[in-house]
């Protein structure tokens, strides 16, 4: 019997752990389920670490499941699961994006991601079991729904996009320039895509996941400016302006800038005081920026442009802009006479 070490690097609460709110606590459990008997054993686990499983692995293999359990309401979340067996190949998937966020691979609906699948242990002898000579790779996509963040989704509902076989050991590099999450507006796709490697069904065990990794895909932000009109003329103090910001990427810096003249993309303007906002979160955010008492941003009359700019791991982008006229100089036409 093969004694198999538990999989390591149990970065438990960094694996898509739900966000705890007040009063909620999460506790983690690892379960080892033996095939074909179904005998189940729990393993105590710290935040990170490794230990050898005392329940050795039969030819039928065993599945290891990593769960986190929320105390109220009593709910469980599967963080990871892996199937290991005496002659089952091993695999590893890594996903990379332009966002250096360390907790969970994530990107945006219009940005690419890259994946590497490494497979080892595949056999090729005529007498070797089929499950030792081939694995199956799958791509699933699942929407979080409008304004959803994935906290309560059932990942069993994910859509199978494609599946294929791998028969040779080695590394396989994949480029995902476009995404598969269903959305009527492609820039507002919001969900996750998952790559998995499965073992083949064996005489003692069903097909099971050897490794799996997913990337979160967040929508492109948008902004609307209210309170000031395109080509509007303003003769007194500047009106209050609201900037409605939707779906700000979890790592975003936002600001409003102004400059004289018509809109010209790439112009470095003057940042409106009080308009800068930093988003550093795990999920997209909505915000409203209000610009008021901002006349000092306009030292001169004339034609001005205001732009809403965001800076994300994907670059600097203009979300919205508006151009208007300022004419605050009082001109007096007339004469002064006195009467005694």
């Amino acid at each position: 019997m093969k004694s198999f070490p538990l999989f390591t690097a149990l970065a438990l609460l960094t694996l898509a752990a739900p966000v705890a709110s007040q009063g909620q606590e999460y506790t983690n459990f690892i379960r080892q389920i033996q095939y074909p008997s179904g005998v189940t054993r729990d393993v105590s686990v710290e935040q990170t670490g490794e230990q050898e499983s005392p329940l050795s692995i039969d030819p039928g293999g065993a599945r290891f499941e990593l769960w986190t359990v929320k105390n109220t309401p009593l709910t469980s979340y599967l963080l990871d699961n892996k199937y290991v067996g005496a002659y089952i190949p091993t695999a590893y998937i890594s996903i990379q994006t332009e966002d250096p966020y360390p907790t969970q691979p994530r990107t945006r609906a219009d940005r690419p991601y890259w994946a590497t699948i490494e497979v080892t242990g595949l056999l090729s002898g005529d007498e070797d079991p089929p499950a030792s000579k081939q694995v199956r790779v799958t791509l699933h996509a699942q929407s979080y729904g409008e304004n959803g963040n994935g906290d309560d989704i059932d990942r069993n509902d994910a859509n199978l996009i494609a599946q294929g076989y791998i028969s040779g050991n080695g590394s396989y590099n994949l480029n995902f320039t476009y995404h598969y999450i269903p959305s009527t507006n492609s820039t507002k796709a919001r969900g996750e895509e998952r790559l998995s490697v499965f073992s083949l069904e064996d005489y003692q065990a069903p097909a099971d996941v050897i490794t799996s990794q997913y990337v979160q895909i967040w929508p492109v932000a948008d902004a609307t400016i209210t309170g000031i009109a395109q080509n509007g003329l303003y003769k007194s103090r500047m009106p209050d302006v609201n900037i409605n910001l939707n779906d700000l990427y979890p790592d975003t810096r936002v600001y409003a800038q102004v400059y004289q003249g018509d809109a010209q993309l790439g112009t470095e303007g003057t940042i409106v005081p009080g308009s800068a906002l930093i988003i550093n979160h795990s999920v997209p955010q909505d915000r409203v920026l209000t610009l008021s008492d901002w006349d000092d941003s306009f030292p001169d009359d004339g034609r001005w442009t205001m732009e809403v700019i965001t800076v994300t791991p994907f670059g600097t982008e203009r979300l919205a802009h508006v151009t208007f006229e300022l004419d605050r100089t009082i001109e007096f036409n007339g004469s002064v006479t006195t009467v005694e």
């Binding site: 599967l78 791509l139 994910a158 480029n175 097909a207 996941v209």
Partner: peptide, 24 residues
């Protein structure tokens, strides 16, 4: 398509054959 790199597989979604059951 990136998945076209692999020999195409047919059949039931393996993720739905033997999904983990809720630990609770």
């Amino acid at each position: 398509e990136p998945m076209a790199k692999f020999e195409k597989a047919e059949g039931e979604d393996p993720a739905k054959i033997n999904p983990p059951q809720d630990i609770i």
